[in-house]
Nucleic acid binder design. Structure first.
Lengths: 132, 132
DNA sequence: CTAAAACCAACCTAAGTGGTAGGTAATACA
DNA sequence: TGTATTACCTACCACTTAGGTTGGTTTTAG
């Protein structure tokens, strides 16, 4: 399976926040309930999104999370690349891959490479506002 | 990573056999050497291909493996689906997936489903003869 | 009889998946 | 000033998968 729960849950959280865009900070407790996912697990997934400024959190009573930009400014590809690390179909194309000495003569590399491009293009063509 | 070494190695073996199509049985020892992969590991990967009649093996001296059909009759998608089990991007789309009770209302399902179709179509559009 | 080949099963290590548990720090509100 | 609420942080853990290795047995050509 290509996409783990990390990426899938992150996306669902982002969609939930998009649906509440403009209503201030939304507590993750509510999102977890709505999405039927463990709050504690979500808390483990979110930091990468806040660190990269996709969302911002406010602590304390009345706090929660909210999108930093309008929903149409988020590409699904960006969310998945952050949470999944990479969308590469094979290890040798990953961003932190070792150089493969077979690369120059590898008969299959162009096929994987083309699919990689296709994958990124597909998910970059969808924005959060497409789910509203 | 979507495609593991199982699928990648299997594909490389199949391409190797395609390159030797018409020359009788090719011992896996030679293929392993050419592809720079452990013979023993390949032996663990091949059974699913023989059981599904993509290749046939002949035991004993002078034996080896060969394609049962001409190279242009093999779709990369078939090889990957057999060796990887599935090309589904998310668990709920897998062939042996439990029914997801969120399916009817899931905002993201159509996106995954469309990508699944895209993936199958891409790899089904490539045949072994495209690598010769 | 011997070498070469497919075929088969058990085992192993490391990493990744999908969480849970148990906190601490910041903030609003009474 | 205290309390509830919220984000934020760290450690742990059971399970599965990836990526093999080891050590065979069977079949067959010469």
């Amino acid at each position: 399976m290509m996409i783990s729960t990390k990426g899938r849950y992150a996306l669902r959280v982002m969609i939930d926040l998009a649906q509440n865009y403009g209503n201030g900070f939304v507590p993750m407790k509510e999102v977890a309930k709505r999405q039927n996912v463990s709050l504690k697990y979500l808390e483990r997934i979110l930091p990468v999104l806040t660190k990269n400024k996709l969302i911002e959190g406010l602590q304390g009573k009345g706090g929660g999370y909210r999108l930093t930009l309008a929903p149409d400014r988020y590409r699904v590809g960006d969310i998945l690349r952050l949470t999944e690390g990479d969308l590469a179909p094979v290890a040798c194309l990953g961003c932190d891959a070792d150089v493969c000495e077979r690369a120059a003569t590898c008969k299959t590399l162009p096929m994987w490479s083309e699919f990689y491009k296709l994958t990124n293009a597909y998910f970059d063509g969808i924005s959060l506002s497409d789910f509203l």
